[in-house]
Write a protein that binds this DNA or RNA. Structure first.
Lengths: 191, 191, 191, 191
DNA sequence: TATGAATGAGGGTTCATTCAT
DNA sequence: GATGAATGAACCCTCATTCAT
C-alpha cells in the first residue's frame, strides 16, 4: 500500500481545513466542505480521521510542531543572546504573517469545544526553547529579572496583536515598522 | 396593559449569552440554552432580539461601549501623561481580569460569522481616547516617535496575553507582577 | 355596552383577513398580522373570535351569505326566465370581479384544514335559488333537460375560470367579452 | 461506490407530497411527514430537493408536463376537428378524475407562497396545442369567432367544476352525464 | 480504500394562544 | 374589554457520521 498516497490526502485535508477556517471561521467548518475542498468524498475524510475532533486536534499538533520547528530552527545554538532573540522574534513574526490561517486556527482552537488538555500540555512544552533562551539572557545580565513567564507572554502577546492589526489593515508592516516593533519588544524586557 | 418589554430581561439574556460562551465557546451557543439560562421561553428571546446574529452584535456593542467607558472614565482629563497612562493601563487590565467572559466573547466575535463590519467600525472608534493620549505623550516628548497604531497595538496585545496566561494559570498576577508588567509596557513605548 | 364598537372591530378583522389572504394566501395568514392590519392588539382578536378556525369559518359564512344576497337580490322574482338568468349571471361575474379577495378566500377555504362540514352544508343551500330558476327554465322548455346540478356546475365553473383568467391578465374582460361569455354560457344550457 | 441517487426515491417523495396535500391541504404539508410517508429520513428529502419550495415547484412542473402529454397525446394530429376536440375533452376530464390529488395540488399551488412565475410561464405554454386546435376549428368555420382565450377558459373551467362536483358527491358522473357535459361544452363554443 | 447517498438528532425560528396588567 | 409580552410546541433545514456498494 502506497503510504505516500495517504500522506498527500492527509495534507489535502489539513489544507482544506485551514483555508475554510481562515475564510469562514470555526463554525463554518463542515466535514463535507473539507472533503470537497480536498478533492475527496466525505466518507474518505473519515478513513483518515476518526471524527471532526480528531481532525482538528491532529491539525493543531501538526501546526504547533511545524511552526515551532521553523521558528526556533538553529537560531539559538551558539549565537550571542541578542542575535538569537532577534532571529526568533522575526521568525515568529514572519511565520505568523506568512500563515495567517494557522494563526486564525490556533486562536479559535483555544476557545473551541474540540480542545483537548493533553494536546495543550504537549504544545506548551514546545515553548521551552524560548524560556531557556530568556533564562540565558537573564544569566548574562542582559534581560530584566522579571519572571520568565511574564517576559515570554509579553513578547508573544505583542507580536500576535501586531499581526492582527496588520491583517486588519490598521497597520502597514514594512521593514521599518518591524524593526521599531522589535526595538519596543527589546526595550520592554532588557535590563 | 400587558407587561411591558423589560430591561431586566435584556440583561438576563446578555448575561446568559456571556456565561455560555465563556464555558462552551461560540459554537456551544444555542438560543434555547440562552433562554433557559435567562429563565425565559425560547420564543421570548426573539421578542428582544430579532435573531441570533442580532443578539450577538448587540451584545458586542454593549460590551465594548461599557468597557471603554469604564476604562477611560476621567483618567485622562487634567492629569500628567504618565499618571493617565498608568491609570488606563491598570483599568484595562483589571476590567479584563474582572470580566473574563467578555474577553472570551470579544475574541471569538472577531472570527465569527456573526461579525458585522459597521459594528467593528463603530467600536474601533471607541479606542480614540487612547490614541489621543499617546499623541499627547509624543508631543510632551515622553513617548517614542513610533507610529501611534504600533504603540497602541503593543500595549493592548501585551495586556491581552497577560490576562490569558493568568486565566490559564501560567502566570499568577499579584500586585508586584502587575507593576512589573506595567513597567515593561512603559519601557517599550517611552522615549 | 356599545354593540356598534364590536361590529366595527369585527369588520376590521374580516377585512384584514381578506386582504392578507389575497396578497399572501392562506399560509401567510398570521393572527398577529390580522390584528396589526385591523389596528388591534393580537389579544383583542381573540375576544372577537375564539380562535383562528372560528375566525375563518365565520368569515366564510359572512362572505357566502353576503355574496348570495347580492347576486340573487330580486333578480329572480317576477321576471322572464332569460332576464333573470342573465341578471344573475352578470351579478355573479361582477361580484367576483369586484371582490377578488373573497374568491381567493373561498377557493382556499375548501382545501384548508379549517373547513367545517356543517358550514359547507349551510352555504350549499344558498345556491338553491339558482337551482330553482333553472328548474323553472326547464319547465318553460327553455333549458336543456340535463340534470340541474350539471347545468349549475357548468355555469359556475365557466364564470370562475373567466375571473381567474381576467385576474391573471390572460383575458381582458370588457363589455363585449362579457357578452360573448354569457352567450356561450347560454348556448351551453339552452334547449 | 455508494448507492446512487435514486429515481424511485424522487417518485416516492412526489407521491407522498401529493397524498398529503390531498388529505390535509398545503398547510398540512410538513417535510418530516413527506419523508415518513416516502419511507425516508427527513434529511434524505433534502438530498433530492433543495428545500420545500423547490420540491413543490418541481412537482408542479412534473405534473403539468405529464398531464399535458397524456391529455394531448396524438389526439390532435390528422383527425377531424371535432374528433380531436372530443378526445382531448375526455382525456382532460378522465385525467382529472383519475388523479384528483393532482388537481387539488395544482389549484392550491396557484394561491401558494411557493409559486414561481417562471414555472407558470413555462406551464402556460403547455396549453398551446389546445389553442392551436381551436384556431383550426375557427378556420374550418366550426367554432365561434370569440377570442380563443375565452373559448379555452370556458372549456377548462367547466370541466374543472364538473370534477369538483363529482368528487364532492354532488354529481354522479356516469357515461351519460359525461356525454351531456361534452355536448354542453360543444354547444358553448360551436359556431 | 474510496465513494457519496442516507440518516436523524439537533438547532434556529415562527406563530397560535394565553394571561398579567 | 383591550393590550402585547410571554409561552412553547412545531416546523424547516443542517451536518456529523454511517454504511451499502
Amino acid at each position: 500500500m502506497p503510504r505516500s498516497k495517504d500522506q498527500q490526502k492527509t495534507k489535502a485535508i489539513f489544507d482544506a481545513t485551514l483555508s475554510i477556517i481562515l475564510r469562514e471561521g470555526f463554525s463554518g467548518l463542515r466535514m463535507s466542505e473539507v472533503a470537497r475542498k480536498a478533492g475527496l468524498a466525505t466518507g474518505t475524510v473519515y478513513i483518515y480521521f476518526e471524527n471532526k475532533t480528531e481532525l482538528i486536534n491532529q491539525l493543531y499538533l501538526v501546526i504547533k510542531r511545524r511552526s515551532t520547528t521553523r521558528i526556533f530552527d538553529e537560531s539559538i545554538v551558539g549565537q550571542p543572546f541578542l542575535v538569537s532573540l532577534e532571529k526568533i522574534w522575526h521568525n515568529y513574526l514572519e511565520y505568523n504573517l506568512l500563515k495567517p490561517e494557522e494563526g486564525a486556527f490556533v486562536e479559535q482552537y483555544y476557545r473551541s469545544p474540540f480542545l483537548r488538555k493533553e494536546v495543550i500540555e504537549e504544545t506548551d512544552r514546545l515553548l521551552l526553547p524560548i524560556f531557556d533562551l530568556l533564562e540565558r539572557g537573564k544569566k548574562e545580565r542582559l534581560v530584566s529579572s522579571a519572571p520568565t513567564e511574564l517576559l515570554v507572554s509579553q513578547l508573544i502577546g505583542s507580536i500576535n496583536e501586531l499581526v492582527k492589526w496588520h491583517l486588519n489593515g490598521r497597520i502597514q508592516l514594512d521593514k521599518t515598522m518591524k524593526d521599531q516593533a522589535f526595538q519596543m519588544a527589546w526595550n520592554s524586557i532588557k535590563r
